[in-house]
Amino acid sequence: MAQNLNEDTLLEMYEKMLLIRKFEEKLYFLFLTRVMPGSMHQCNGQEACAVGVCANLVKNDYITSTHRGHGHCLAKGADVKAVMAEMFGKKTGLCKGMGGSMHIADFSVGMLGANGIVAAGIPQAAGAAWACRYLKNDHIAVAFFGDGAANEGVFHEGLNLAAVWKLPVVFVCENNLYGLSTHYRKVTAVENIAARAAAYNMPGTIVDGMDVLAVYETAREAVARARNGGGPTLLECKTYRYMGHSRFEKPSYRTQEEVEEWKQKDPIPAFAGRLKEEFMVSKEAITAIERKVDEEIENAVKYAEAGPDPEPDDYKQYIYA
């Protein structure tokens, strides 16, 4: 496994996971100190899914994301400063302060948007994939979504459409066990969401979403299948979110023991360990990445805080093209 990976790619995956983790930890702090407006949904614990999949994509491949979209956006290569500025609702944000956390998007890197509506990005990814094939540009699309989205109608409509049109798209379900407070087994008829792929005549694969290399390898096959005209894949990453569904939530629906148990499988220190032991990456190299990420986030916060607010009437220019 992972023989095809050179050290640069490995380190880049580590850096991206760490960036997402630290970015969200910083957001959490900024929210608690009430410097930052709005609400947010954190993906702490799920970083390996976004990073393992996106490491297989090129800049002009498309992704659609969810309300829990910071990780996908950063993994796809969006500029950290501009993402942070958007969290602050600043004019210097990726979306000029008009979208915020829940609508973060960066079209310059193919990130078509986080989404406040569960599962809405699924048919959009199918459509983007259709455009890629029609325009013969060799690109593909990936839809990220959660276990809750698998019970929305557009999940089924979108997968069916993608399958009958044999579109170059990968559907990535990050099954973090809970749709807000509801355990997926209480509301989902199957143990494995990947099993639903059979209904749409596409491969369905399950992978340990806490293992970035496993995600990388599994996604690599699905991405290659899409790019080579083999049609869509449903990839289910078994994962967990450490934080609540959104801000200021009482964790009434799960135990602290459960959270701690999953934290034992944390993808980031586990990967750092493997980098040292299996891939002979030096301790210094790892530390250097950690310092770089810290610095990048500090700079992003400074950039965001220093940026101007939008003018009160700025919204008007964005309603219509």
């Binding site: 959009q124 459509g127 994939a129």
Partner: peptide
């Protein structure tokens, strides 16, 4: 219908 319009939105975002 949701997938038809959803796919059309995605396709529009991707250049059609």
């Amino acid at each position: 219908e949701a997938a038809i319009v959803g796919a059309a939105v995605g396709a529009a975002l991707a250049g059609l």
